[in-house]
């Protein structure tokens, strides 16, 4: 199927600003699903609130647009009732790690087979550019006119510490890499996290004088490097890209099936 077969064309052009990285994530995500040759009926996409979460409205899968930060809770419900479906949860940085931080760490801890895509643009774009838990100290935002003093999370370390079994990071500049990582994350059995560094030229870019969407993408190219590469080893400021963790651990729905089996066979304590 072609890319346009996976989208709801009647809602295009989309609401995202010119040059918004979220559109590139949508583009890459559709391509990874196309590569996998999946049917639209076997995918459920659940999102919360924010610019990123609007992605659900544009794709022609089973979609749920739920409440802020709680997309993973809804997704857990969907996955447990229909484990045969592939559940993908696109989230913004604030949605995933501030409002939904608790749901995020516990979904990771359970290792439930859900693919979480964190579209990290380091700002709350939809509501006017407030700083998020990923803005980082020293950045400017509407709510931090004298510079932000909050340090940021490292999504990769946090996801790994919480128990996610597939953790990757990439950027919107690296569109082919993003497609490949999302493809691998969907195939992985367990909780998969893909952090895609994305650009918000309207708020984060303008407030922090980072230039146009193109300039921000060029910057993402220059400040990142593949895991363990020479550039990453020599410069501690470099943000590493790649797959940080890919391991097999008991998956939540499979473990729950065993509970059902024990209960139906009367093997309780």
């Amino acid at each position: 199927m072609a890319v346009k077969d996976y989208i709801r064309e009647r809602f295009f052009p989309h609401i995202w600003c010119a040059g918004c990285g979220h559109g590139i994530v949508l583009n890459s995500m559709i391509r990874s699903i196309e590569t996998l040759g999946m049917s639209k009926n076997e995918i459920v996409m659940v999102s919360g609130i924010g610019c990123s979460s609007r992605i659900c409205g544009y794709v022609d899968f089973h979609t749920l647009h739920t409440i802020h930060g709680r997309a993973l809770a809804f997704a857990t419900g969907v996955k447990m009732s229909k484990p045969e479906l592939n559940v993908i949860v696109p989230m913004g940085d604030g949605d995933a790690l501030s409002i939904g931080g608790n749901h995020f760490i516990h979904a990771a801890r359970r290792n439930i087979d859900i693919t979480a895509i964190i579209m990290n643009n380091r700002i709350y774009g939809m509501t006017g550019g407030q700083y998020s838990p990923l803005s980082g100290a020293g950045t400017l935002a509407t709510t931090a006119p004298y510079h932000n003093i909050d340090p940021d999370f490292d999504v990769v370390k946090m996801a790994m510490a919480a128990g996610a079994t597939f953790v990757a990071r990439t950027t919107t500049y690296h569109a082919k890499e993003t497609t490949d990582m999302i493809r691998q994350a969907i195939l992985h059995e367990g909780f998969s996290v893909v952090e895609v560094m994305s650009q918000c030229p309207t708020y984060f870019g303008r407030k922090n004088r980072l230039g146009s969407a193109v300039d921000m993408m060029k910057q993402m190219k220059s400040i990142t490097a593949p895991i363990g590469s020479k550039a990453a080893r020599e410069n501690p400021e470099i943000i590493e890209r790649g797959i940080f963790c890919q391991e097999e651990k008991p998956e939540y729905c499979s473990e729950y099936d065993k509970v059902i089996e024990r209960a139906t066979q009367g093997q309780g304590v």
């Binding site: 295009f12 995202w16 010119a18 979220h22 559109g23 583009n27 890459s28």
Partner: peptide
Amino acid sequence: KLCELRCPDLA
């Protein structure tokens, strides 16, 4: 196809 892959508007 780099233009197609990176187009945020799928245009």
